[in-house]
Design a protein around this nucleic acid. Sequence first.
DNA 1: GTATTTTTGAGTTACGTACATCATATTTTG
DNA 2: CAAAATATGATGTACGTAACTCAAAAATAC
Lengths: 341, 341
Amino acid sequence: MRPTVYDIAKDAGVSLATVDRVLNNRPGVREKTIQQVQDAIAKLGYVRDVAAANLARQRSYDFICVLPDSKSEFLAEVRAAIDEAAAGLSPDRTSISVREFPLDNTNKLIELLGEIQAEVPDGVAIMAPETPAVRDAVKRIMAAGTHVTPIISDLPSTDRSHFVGINNVGAGRTAAQLMGRFLDSKAATILVVAGSMVSTDHAERRTGFDETMCIAFPQHNVLPTLEAFDKAENVRERVGEALRHHPDISGIYSIGAGNQGLVSILHETGRAKDIIVVAHELTDCSRNALMSGTFDAVIAQNVGHIVRSAVRTLKAQTDNLQTIESQERIRTEIFIAENLS
Amino acid sequence: MRPTVYDIAKDAGVSLATVDRVLNNRPGVREKTIQQVQDAIAKLGYVRDVAAANLARQRSYDFICVLPDSKSEFLAEVRAAIDEAAAGLSPDRTSISVREFPLDNTNKLIELLGEIQAEVPDGVAIMAPETPAVRDAVKRIMAAGTHVTPIISDLPSTDRSHFVGINNVGAGRTAAQLMGRFLDSKAATILVVAGSMVSTDHAERRTGFDETMCIAFPQHNVLPTLEAFDKAENVRERVGEALRHHPDISGIYSIGAGNQGLVSILHETGRAKDIIVVAHELTDCSRNALMSGTFDAVIAQNVGHIVRSAVRTLKAQTDNLQTIESQERIRTEIFIAENLS
DNA sequence: GTATTTTTGAGTTACGTACATCATATTTTG
DNA sequence: CAAAATATGATGTACGTAACTCAAAAATAC
């Protein structure tokens, strides 16, 4: 039988009220008495029954998730993961509301962050580009007493205590290693398409990719990054153009979204099978492309895991608790046709 | 504000006692009244507060996990994952106790399963070879009212409602695809080392491996499976012997445990770098081997995820609830040096 | 040594649900 | 239509904790 507050009180030789004061950091207890109580807690191995506690204090967690309003498949997956997590979390008195901002209008984002700051929610999970204005707005939210954790794309300059997402430099290295191994060993030309180099995640991936390419496969020629702003139509056009200019391209690394455009241009030009393609994020499009052999590998992060991890992390922060470290590490996943779930 | 039983009572025009009778399937309520209550539940979107309910009914979950007593690194990881999960679960009134059986003595396992049957725990997670005697013992446990879910290695013949683990045929296919792509395209000889073909998981992996090898890389020569019973020393000896007999081996697929033996024989024979090795499970050994370039890819399953999923599944079964489908799907993970956490 | 402040004790109510008892209302049976 | 059976209501206690009040005790100040 797990010990309760009554057992602690008895063991420490104090009243229930005192135990309560100690447990909840209420004032008016002598240092000596606090120690007695804490000794008893340690001795009996007491752990607070969080469910009962939350029931009693009518605690509810309200979290806000800030996302770009992009209509990409990946962000749809992120939203779906949030909805799913929210559904499963309602019995735990936890609500997550999603707020979106237009990617092309930083002012709107700052405005939104100002509103959130005023609401003082328990926690905020945010996926946004890292600009000085964003950094300051996030810092203000934190100063107002709200815990903030960046997700997917990091905001290191905000001094966040946690980041929930993958190591994107490592992801780029992984892409390069697979690309290099899947290509013939003779010199090849490789095209890199990204969304925007202003996004921390995309920039980091490119860094990692170049790093490993340089060291492990120096014979290849990696072209400068095409920026396509995560839009399929842009990807289509710009890749089409690149293929015309460089008929010798035999590898494509797609860092961002808009993979539908990549798939269609590859099919149109009849290069779907012979060009090695490594892309990011598991979506319907990339999944199909893997199965049909158009894509050769996909580097992914489990968005469901990311969302749940963000919730756990924020909850732990608000309750001032520890999290299971290993459970919160987001792995960089590799998919090929054969291991699609 | 979430509706409570009081709201249901008011809306349905019945007393609290009646709502309680309906909610907990107690007898003495007319069909018509039951319907009224259920309509109110549906209308208000009532969901039972599981935490409060468990608190009130003093519910605790006691689960048993049955594992082989093997001292392999992988099983150590499994045990560690269970300990970690158990620690995090104690506030949820959930206990997991581990029972081990000697892999070489099926009678002991049957005996153990008999004991477990008599204890009637809430749920059992089991990793064991599938023999007729095991199947029957498991069926008896289930008949006694305990929910059973096989983990890691499936027991399809027990008619279990869930299996928590990866698709091992798919894992074998994944291994073959990576092996094929990492090898030169010219004909190669490939060695396959497994624990024992009696284990469902190992047998399935070999099946998947052969399948993809045959279809995608028919030029290669895949040798018959070496059985090494998951012991490093056996692996070492048998692989050493195989390397002497077949100096042309340029790929090794390690299906089971005992990778330390594989690593040492490869180093001793100076073949660590030139032979392509695909192995299973992420352990200290395989992680180091990846980083040093001795192993080229590792196929893994997240044991922490498996354990937590098994607990959620068993809990949902005992409470007669649904689980989040996507959260319970265990992915077949691929690791190379670059995406090691 | 008295007045004041600080610390502690004892007790109550609440959270949402489970479960039990006993009384009363409604329906069914003969 | 009365008796028996069944259905429902009213009420209380419990679970483990939080949060509050008020009184009493202990420590400190003057």
